[in-house]
Design a protein around this nucleic acid. Sequence first.
DNA 1: CATGAATGAGCGTTCATTCAT
DNA 2: GATGAATGAACGCTCATTCAT
Lengths: 188, 188, 188, 188
Amino acid sequence: MAKPRSEEKRSAIMAAAVRVIAAQGLGAPTATIAQEAGVANGSLFTYFETKADLFNQLYLELKSELASVSLKGLPVTADLRKQMLHAWSRSMDWAVSNPGKRRALAQLGVSDEITPASREAGHKTMTGIAALLERSRAKGPMRQVPMGFIVAIMNAMGDATMDFMIHDPTHAKKHCKAGFDALWRMLA
Amino acid sequence: MAKPRSEEKRSAIMAAAVRVIAAQGLGAPTATIAQEAGVANGSLFTYFETKADLFNQLYLELKSELASVSLKGLPVTADLRKQMLHAWSRSMDWAVSNPGKRRALAQLGVSDEITPASREAGHKTMTGIAALLERSRAKGPMRQVPMGFIVAIMNAMGDATMDFMIHDPTHAKKHCKAGFDALWRMLA
Amino acid sequence: MAKPRSEEKRSAIMAAAVRVIAAQGLGAPTATIAQEAGVANGSLFTYFETKADLFNQLYLELKSELASVSLKGLPVTADLRKQMLHAWSRSMDWAVSNPGKRRALAQLGVSDEITPASREAGHKTMTGIAALLERSRAKGPMRQVPMGFIVAIMNAMGDATMDFMIHDPTHAKKHCKAGFDALWRMLA
Amino acid sequence: MAKPRSEEKRSAIMAAAVRVIAAQGLGAPTATIAQEAGVANGSLFTYFETKADLFNQLYLELKSELASVSLKGLPVTADLRKQMLHAWSRSMDWAVSNPGKRRALAQLGVSDEITPASREAGHKTMTGIAALLERSRAKGPMRQVPMGFIVAIMNAMGDATMDFMIHDPTHAKKHCKAGFDALWRMLA
DNA sequence: CATGAATGAGCGTTCATTCAT
DNA sequence: GATGAATGAACGCTCATTCAT
């Protein structure tokens, strides 16, 4: 009956938040985000209860976008290494094509506004990749190491690789490959 | 500008900052840091021009402490792998013994208050380790990769390993070893 | 301006306002009142132009409810004291049976949102009681005192008595009597 | 060593609060109070933790000022009625000479920002008057009524009388006397 | 007319930095 | 130099009111 809450506006805010966080960090005023999204500052709070809530939702959205993009078109019949490489490359491509999102995600990832629940949910979105990883290391030298540790290392290496690719885009491909090879040497 | 009177007070502030940042993050008020250091809030600004200045100096100090601790007692006559393992283990031990410092350093590392100049200077403190790293990878599969990338990966892996050791101290030794072995597999 | 469609909805809002004001004071959001009334927040403003308007109308309604209840069943043939006692007791009973209304009325009474016009109109609803009061004091020691003053005192004493009865309901009857006797001693 | 917290500034804020509350009610912005007091808006919070804290302290201060003023110069050797009359008149004079304070106190008295503890403390300041009251009613018709009730009635009558005196200052004296006589008739 | 999203002014409070003592 | 009160810009969030649906 009334003007419905528009998904469009919600994502405009999300997108604005990405841009603003990438540019100014998490300390950016909510008013700036609202303005960038083209809505009144008060409207932001129709869609997100608090600034922290916005951050948590954004974190999850980016995390799951990254996860889903990584697995898109996964060559499930190919050998493991090829599958992992596919996922890895997709992640890196996403980061390079979306440097703002990547920056925002990096900042959100270390923020203490992000609740344990959100981190947990973030992990869940990576289940598919974790499964690949699990199989990849199953017979390798890290077969005894806790999965959490392996995931952490993979994320850390991914982050480092992303940063490098974004910072030196000319050789992005090369860095991507180098990062993956290093990861694979560790695992298998 | 001139060296402040009391070096003692300066380091009290630094130490307080570590504790406070570890506990409350970078958003902690300067007044809290001053209080924790046992000085008046205004006094903080006779030792550091701005909050950002304090953060930059602290970043550098922690970074170089970590670097110097890593190389202390380096078995220079031993083979490369042993030297690297020594440096790695020292780093990890430092992190485990100084979780506050490690947390603070991690936060500072991702802050956008830290200037490029500070980051540059931070890298310089790691020259010794970088040299080790350079020799380690000289004949390995990463011999063509830019050193910056390798350093980044090593740092990333170090960070992941530290986190894991702190989080699960019972198996700290094991995680330390696993992290190093993984690193070595990548490099050599 | 024209009479709103649903008198039912109007009084639902009024009743909700009573409950909400009693619980949260005059600072309560209009949205809360609307919600409590089961209408949309915007709808409140089709029945009342502003929040202040709602308050003024509510004030009047409560005031006149109290006045009318006081005179209901007045034993017009009995002696004056009995009539006054009747009115007094009715008022007190109303307050005890409707503590929410009483609280709301008390808050509204001291609010500066209530216009002089509303206060004036509120007084008018008490004409019947004022007449009783006038006759009661006609030959007593307060025969020279301005009626407004007497009304004010009676109200003040009524308020104090109500508060006491609500606060200590076990002896409500006793307090009611004590209050009235005190009033009567003043007047007659 | 440093600029000490000035009692002068504290009372400037208090006094400003009285003026502003009298004029605009309790909803007045803290910034307005600060400005009226001639201090920066932030400074208000050096002296009072919160707006509510300011209100509570102000309530107590006014309450105790009123209590102390009432007993000043009490003719302790005179008969009870004279003593009561003295206290009553002093109160009324205070209200008439300080209409702002009286208004502010009236508003604060009904605010739900005022904590039970403050109300309790406020009552304590009236111990002296309560004692007078106790003796006054000891042999009168209200000898069985709870003191709390009597205090409440006296306050209510005092409030009504004050309002009337302020509203119609020409006959202030007369109203003061009428109010007292009425009170005395109730009690003794 | 009902709905509830949209608006934006406004508020209490914080805090880095300055400055009087 | 040391102190801590003073400053005032800034921010997150609220809420009365409007308006598109």
